[in-house]
């Protein structure tokens, strides 16, 4: 077990290293580093001085080591636009994105699991078939277009919800949060639900197929024969067995949700790091782009690691299989 964790850790470090190479090559070989790292207003003498100062006249491997050393110390350059350390900019915007993504995943659990249970228990009913058709729609709908339609209906036509921005926030531990105020919640409703749509469809399908797989099993028949109430069989016995795949997929899905928040944040002008990265790409503020990519890769590697570890804790079969 310890050996396995250790091996998995080393693997994560290697993935991280591979990604730094890709991002470094992307910025320094495919793009022009002089244009990327030096302000376009600089004159010729300034450019040469800056090239020497940034070490761009050194061989590529040496430049890469410098970049890596900077990244380890949390120094990924300064933004041209904001003239602030890029990493600091990203971390300032991160809570807004995480707040949105966590809410979206919670919505997926709260709505997806009950709907999936019902659809699985009554697969041939009208509701069961509607839920399946709806979930296909959930995968097919262009999420950014749905966001626009939400704004159209709920903000413009009905005037129920504010269309853009984060609303009033409350500062806790030095970080502003929206979910603690009524206004903030109103601002969050549409983007969070928009971001959750795909996840709801996914959880619904997973839960439904889990229920259908588990219901004919011996342990369910035994629990029934023991005289347990149908509610207890479904909510305690079956649900427990369905939760392992649902939790795993949701854990992995959390990273995708954060990445996909780029789209939702652009539609609803939610001031998170996704909106920052799109703005930065449009004005070629590359230090911020590099910082965003490194942060999100780090997040992904960490999430994959945690899900793998949790999986071994939750499901003993994986642990035994891994030991062989």
């Amino acid at each position: 077990m310890t050996v396995w964790i250790f091996r998995r850790l080393i693997q994560a470090v290697f993935v991280m290293l591979a990604m730094t190479v890709i991002v470094f090559v992307g910025v320094n070989v495919i793009g022009d580093p002089v244009e990327i790292l030096i302000s376009p207003d600089a004159d010729q003498a300034e450019r040469i001085r800056a090239i020497a100062a940034l070490g761009l006249d050194k061989p590529l491997w040496e430049q890469y080591l410098r970049f890596l050393w900077g990244a380890v110390r949390g120094d990924l350059g300064r933004s041209f636009v904001f003239n602030e350390p890029a990493l600091q900019l990203i971390s300032q915007r991160m809570p807004a994105t995480l707040e949105l993504a966590v809410t979206a995943v919670l919505l997926a659990v709260v709505l997806g699991i009950p709907l999936g249970l019902l659809a699985g228990l009554y697969p041939h009913s009208l509701f069961g078939r509607l839920a399946m058709a709806g979930s296909i729609l959930g995968f097919s709908l262009p999420s950014f277009w749905v966001g626009l339609m939400f704004i159209m209906i709920f903000a413009v036509q009905l005037g129920w919800l504010p269309s853009t921005g984060r609303g009033a926030t409350v500062t806790v531990f030095g970080i502003p949060w929206s979910f603690l105020t009524r206004d903030g919640l109103a601002h969050m409703a549409m983007p969070a639900f928009n971001l959750a749509l795909g996840n709801i469809a996914l959880v619904l399908r997973l839960t439904r197929s889990g229920v259908r797989e588990n219901m004919p099993m011996d342990y369910v028949r035994f629990a029934r024969a023991k005289g347990l109430s149908p509610q207890r069989v479904v909510f305690v016995h079956v649900l427990k067995n369905i939760m392992i795949p649902v939790v795993t997929v949701l854990g992995l899905q959390f990273g995708s949700t954060v990445a996909f928040a780029v789209v939702t944040e652009s539609v609803f002008a939610w001031p998170g790091m996704g909106k920052l990265i799109i703005d930065s790409i449009n004005v070629l503020d590359r230090p911020v782009i590099v910082a965003y990519l490194m942060m999100i890769v780090l997040m992904f590697v960490t999430i994959n690691l945690i899900v793998d570890l949790l999986y071994t804790v939750l499901d003993p079969r994986v642990r035994i299989g891994g030991a062989e």
């Binding site: 992307g26 495919i30 995708s256 990445a259 789209v263 790409i281 992904f300």
Partner: peptide, 19 residues
Amino acid sequence: DLQLSFPAILVALMILAFL
């Protein structure tokens, strides 16, 4: 495996940010 562990939109975003 490496590529499928990252969502498509992120990989595409990364490539288009470079290109």
